[in-house]
Simulated scan of single mutants.
Amino acid sequence: MKYAKLSQTEDLMPTLGLGTWQAPPEVIETTVYKALDLGYRHIDTAFNYNNEEAIGNAIKRWIQDGKGTRKDLFITTKLPHVGNRAADVKRFLHLQLGRLQMDYVDLYLIHVPFGFRCDPDTLTPLVKENGDYDIDMETDHISTWKAMEECQREGLIRNLGLSNFNETQILKIINSATIKPQVLQVELHAYFQQLDLRKFCMEHEIVVTAYAPLGSPGAKEHFVNKYNYSPDVFPDLLGHPEVKDIARNHGKTPAQVLLRFLVQQKVIVIPKSTSDHRLKENSDIYDFELLPAEINRLKKLDKGEDSRVFNFLFWKGVEKHPEYPFKLQTVDTSKD
């Protein structure tokens, strides 16, 4: 395993982690245990994934079985959109720590820069009669960040970060922070390489984590069935001729090449899988190195903003939030 050193704390963050979005509790508990046995030490979850409790169960059992300690692990979770306000930070964090059965998390991220009003009974976003989400238009990143800093000082969080924020939003927090953002988690893959954002992060000593590093093939069915997206919206990186050719050159799989492409450029990756075979495959990326010419071939696959999959427009009305982070695209994502 390779590591990235985080600014300010100098904590070591494994460059490979296990993503757990769309992994139901009854599946993820077994998956996390198997991943830990395979050598994974970095687990990424979130309140919105509804699987923190199962992940906590798996980690507790793994430790009780004598296979490692809490200090061996790097656990990331995230403040949800329904708790994106200073008054709710500690409340949600304590709830999440309870579910994870931990005294602290290694990294706590603001999951998205916008906020929704919360149903107090279900802890899910309130929805208006017209189907729009009940948006909290007063989302204040600075006050929320200050509340997270307080939790860090209390020992509940080791490191602080952001997810899905743009440069302007990040810079605003940097200029007001005592503890500056240490990690930014964003969608990032060969079709959507986010070079300007990565350069910005490097200049500010922010480590970048790529979610959907394989183009999120697992999201396709979810978005097509639940949100009526067109299947054509989703990239097929694993089947791209350039990727397959480079994989053949190294005796590796396309997935391993795509992950190595990012890790070799100092990007942390958190591919999600519940398959034993894929878990092993995704972890075997440290015994080969892509040549400069191969890196350049993959860099040419970048299609920019048009290849963003996760624009969050499936949350109806979210683009009206003053902190919606992305430029709106005119591409029609719906099926005919």
Rank of each mutant, 00 (worst) to 15 (best):
K2P: 15
Y3M: 14
A4E: 12
A4G: 11
D11G: 08
L12K: 10
M13Q: 09
L18S: 03
L18R: 04
T20V: 13
A23N: 07
A23I: 07
I28R: 01
I28P: 01
V32A: 03
V32Q: 03
Y33K: 10
A35I: 02
L38S: 10
L38T: 10
G39M: 12
R41S: 09
I43N: 09
D44H: 07
A46N: 02
A46D: 01
A46M: 05
N48V: 12
N48Y: 11
A54H: 00
I55H: 03
I55V: 11
W62L: 09
K67T: 05
T69H: 08
F74W: 14
T76N: 07
T76I: 06
T77C: 04
K78N: 00
L79N: 04
H81V: 13
F92P: 02
F92H: 06
L93G: 02
L95V: 13
Q96S: 10
L100I: 05
Q101W: 10
D103A: 07
Y108D: 03
H111E: 02
V112Q: 07
D121C: 09
T122R: 08
T124W: 11
E129S: 15
N130S: 02
N130H: 07
G131P: 02
G131E: 03
G131C: 11
D134I: 04
I135R: 03
M137G: 14
T139L: 06
T144N: 00
A147L: 04
E150F: 04
C151P: 01
C151V: 00
N159P: 03
T168V: 11
T168L: 15
I170N: 01
L171M: 06
I174T: 11
N175L: 09
K180S: 15
P181N: 04
V186D: 10
E187N: 03
E187T: 00
H189N: 15
Y191F: 12
Y191T: 08
F192C: 08
D196M: 09
R198I: 15
V207A: 15
V208F: 06
T209F: 13
P213F: 12
P213G: 14
P217F: 14
P217I: 11
P217T: 12
H222G: 10
V224Q: 05
K226Q: 13
Y227N: 08
N228D: 15
V233C: 15
F234K: 06
L237P: 14
P241F: 01
E242D: 12
K244T: 14
A247G: 02
N249T: 13
N249W: 10
H250F: 01
T253I: 02
A255H: 03
A255S: 13
L259E: 06
V263A: 15
K266M: 12
K266C: 15
V267I: 10
P271D: 08
T274Q: 08
T274P: 05
S275Q: 06
S275V: 10
S275G: 02
S275F: 08
S275C: 07
L279R: 01
E281I: 01
N282P: 06
S283C: 15
S283V: 07
S283R: 14
S283I: 11
Y286I: 04
Y286Q: 12
E289M: 05
E294R: 00
I295D: 12
I295S: 09
I295H: 12
N296V: 13
L301D: 05
G304P: 08
D306T: 14
N311P: 00
L313T: 05
L313H: 02
V318T: 00
H321N: 04
Y324I: 03
P325I: 00
T330Q: 14
T330L: 09
V331Q: 12
D332V: 04
